[in-house]
Design a protein around this nucleic acid. Sequence first.
DNA 1: CTTGACCTTGTAGTTACTACAAGGTGCATA
DNA 2: TATGCACCTTGTAGTAACTACAAGGTCAAG
Lengths: 131, 131
Amino acid sequence: MRIGELAKATGTKAETIRYYEREGILPAADRTDSNYRDYSDEHLATLIFVRRARALGFTMAQVRELLALSDHEDKPCRDVDQLVQRQLGEVTRKIADLTSLQDELQHMLRSCQADRIGECRIVESLARPLR
Amino acid sequence: MRIGELAKATGTKAETIRYYEREGILPAADRTDSNYRDYSDEHLATLIFVRRARALGFTMAQVRELLALSDHEDKPCRDVDQLVQRQLGEVTRKIADLTSLQDELQHMLRSCQADRIGECRIVESLARPLR
DNA sequence: CTTGACCTTGTAGTTACTACAAGGTGCATA
DNA sequence: TATGCACCTTGTAGTAACTACAAGGTCAAG
């Protein structure tokens, strides 16, 4: 699979894919005789993962950490455990925030369909008292 | 409430708060006699909202749109409805992805606590077939 | 054998901050 | 009264994570 195909399949710019390779986010692809990058299905899966994780607000550093979990055979279980705990906490917090936002958007939709403007509590949906 | 206090309360740099004001994300604060910015509880709520939304992967443009929903009295219901539908779709997709990631992280934690290294499917958790 | 879509490396621009610097004001406290 | 800290302004520059463009090479279709 060449870079353009991979780009299309993932909605990523070819430039961004090469950037990920430079940054070590995506492993370097094999090269064809004419020096073109030749991607595998694993590359595809990793890139989809990276793009989703980025869209969910994870930094590159966090994405790197998450990817590193993939080959945790060589690391002590305790370290992996700690990292996973930390990521899990962040994921759970994000889900809570998004669910709250979802509730509010659904509420707005209902009141809009009823054709009467209800109070909009969208800011409050995320700005409720800190946990 | 002065800028330093607001910064502390929200974990935002004072520079960033002034930047948000320049960008029109945060309404300009009142000024004291000595020209200090004087923030209200609404400012606080808005800033918490902005920071959370940004952490959830929304762009500044999307945050602007979401904030605009707060004063939708002056806009036709149909427009608001469309925007809300769109945002709702994105929020729902994010929740699905995060839930999938959460499942995988929890699975890793269990297998780690059992002190045997299980297969890591973290990439697959987000890279499953596109919907 | 040319056209156009692809590929390469490299540089520069964009977004959303973040950090200084320089120079000034406000205000509590030793 | 002096010290020191938080704040004000404008401005420049750095960072992260892309994104675009330039200059030139490769390749399959018509």
